[in-house]
Structure formats: structure tokens, C-alpha cells
Computed example of a mutant assay.
Amino acid sequence: MAQYSDEELLSAAREAAANAYAPYSSFPVGAAVWPGEGQPVFLGCNVENAAYGEAICAERNAVTTMVAQGIRQVDTVAVIGLKAHPCYPCGACRQVLREFGCRRVVVEGPDGRPVAHDFSELLPYSFGPDALSGV
């Protein structure tokens, strides 16, 4: 069964960032989403658009690829911004990661080492599927 280290996930995210399409911001980002034990890693990069609001972030790109494969759970996401260390998920990405139960977020610190956070540190008091259980 596959188990990935934080370093391996960040390396995969870095590889994905190299494929980013960021002609407007010049801010390439890559993400590696790992659903958990025995699952593959799903990669995503940011893809911008001349209609700026139509861009998609690396994290959401990776999650949608994961969902397209029938997987509905995120254990860990690693995020690399090639021009910023650390590079954390934006608010929209945090909400999508919350939807799929993300447990951990790993970013590259200023010294190049992995910095891991429990997801609840990044999105405290979050709104998710469980909030709709009484609806």
C-alpha cells in the first residue's frame, strides 16, 4: 500500500507547478492531493484564462481530477508556489478541500522544508456537508 512522505508530495506538487498555465499572473502553483492509504496521488496546476474569473487553482484542479476517478476523500494536500514559500490554498480551495474531508495541508517553508498543518488550523469553524445533515 502506498504511503507518501511530505517531501514526496511536495516534489510531486513542484512537478505539477512546472506545467502551470499562468501567463497573466506569472505565479505558477502546483498541488498534489493524496486520498489516503492505497490510493494514488492526483496532481493539479493553476490554469489561468484571459477572463480572469475563469481561472482554476491547482488544488481544485487536483481535486476535480480525483473526483473524476470516483474518489471522494482527501487525506493530505501539498501545495507549491514556485515564486512564494509558503504558498497556502486560497479560500475557495480551502472550502473545496473541506468538502472532501481534507485532514492535512503541507506547504514548503521559507527554508525549503515541509510545513504541515491540520486542516482545521487553516479553516476553523468551517461549513461542510455535515452542516446540512438536518436539512
Score class of each variant (00 low, 15 high):
Met1Cys: 05
Ala2Gly: 03
Ala2Tyr: 14
Gln3Ser: 15
Tyr4Gly: 04
Asp6Ser: 10
Asp6Met: 10
Asp6Trp: 07
Glu8Ala: 14
Glu8Thr: 05
Glu8Cys: 06
Ala12Phe: 03
Ala13Asp: 02
Ala13Phe: 00
Glu15His: 10
Glu15Gln: 14
Ala16Cys: 04
Ala16Lys: 01
Ala18Tyr: 00
Ala20Gln: 01
Tyr21Gln: 05
Ala22Tyr: 00
Ala22Ile: 00
Ala22Gly: 00
Pro23His: 08
Pro23Tyr: 04
Pro23Thr: 06
Tyr24Pro: 01
Ser25Asp: 11
Ser26Asp: 11
Phe27Thr: 04
Phe27Gln: 07
Val29Thr: 05
Val29Asp: 00
Ala31Phe: 02
Pro35Gln: 15
Pro35Arg: 08
Gly36Ile: 10
Gly36Pro: 15
Glu37His: 09
Gly38Trp: 04
Gln39Phe: 06
Leu43Met: 07
Gly44Ser: 04
Gly44Asn: 12
Gly44Tyr: 05
Asn46Pro: 02
Asn46Tyr: 03
Val47Tyr: 03
Val47Ala: 04
Val47Lys: 02
Asn49Pro: 02
Ala50Leu: 12
Ala51Gly: 07
Ala51Ile: 08
Gly53Thr: 07
Ala55Phe: 06
Ala58Thr: 02
Glu59Gly: 06
Glu59Ile: 03
Arg60Val: 06
Arg60Gly: 10
Arg60Pro: 00
Asn61Phe: 05
Ala62Val: 02
Ala62Leu: 04
Val63Leu: 09
Val63Gly: 04
Thr65Phe: 01
Thr65Val: 04
Met66Leu: 02
Met66Thr: 06
Met66Ser: 04
Arg72His: 12
Gln73Met: 06
Gln73Cys: 04
Val74Ser: 05
Val74Met: 08
Asp75Ala: 12
Asp75Leu: 11
Thr76Cys: 09
Ala78Asp: 14
Ile80Glu: 01
Gly81Ser: 07
Leu82Pro: 08
Lys83Gln: 06
His85Met: 12
Tyr88Phe: 15
Pro89Gln: 09
Gly91Thr: 11
Gln95Ser: 03
Val96His: 00
Val96Arg: 01
Val96Gly: 00
Leu97Gly: 01
Leu97Asp: 02
Leu97Asn: 01
Arg98Ile: 02
Arg98Thr: 14
Gly101Glu: 12
Arg104Asn: 14
Arg104Pro: 01
Val105Leu: 09
Val106Leu: 13
Val106Ser: 11
Val107Arg: 03
Glu108Cys: 14
Glu108Tyr: 10
Pro110Asp: 13
Asp111His: 08
Gly112Pro: 06
Gly112Met: 11
Arg113Phe: 13
Arg113Cys: 07
Pro114Met: 12
Val115Asn: 01
Ala116Ser: 15
Ala116Tyr: 03
Ala116Pro: 05
His117Ser: 13
Phe119Lys: 09
Phe119Glu: 06
Ser120Asp: 15
Glu121Gln: 14
Leu122Thr: 03
Leu123Tyr: 14
Pro124Gln: 10
Tyr125Ser: 12
Tyr125Asp: 15
Ser126Ile: 00
Phe127Ala: 13
Phe127Ser: 09
Gly128Ile: 03
Leu132Thr: 05
Leu132Ala: 11
Gly134Met: 12
Gly134Cys: 08
Gly134Phe: 04
Gly134His: 15
Gly134Glu: 13
Val135Gly: 08
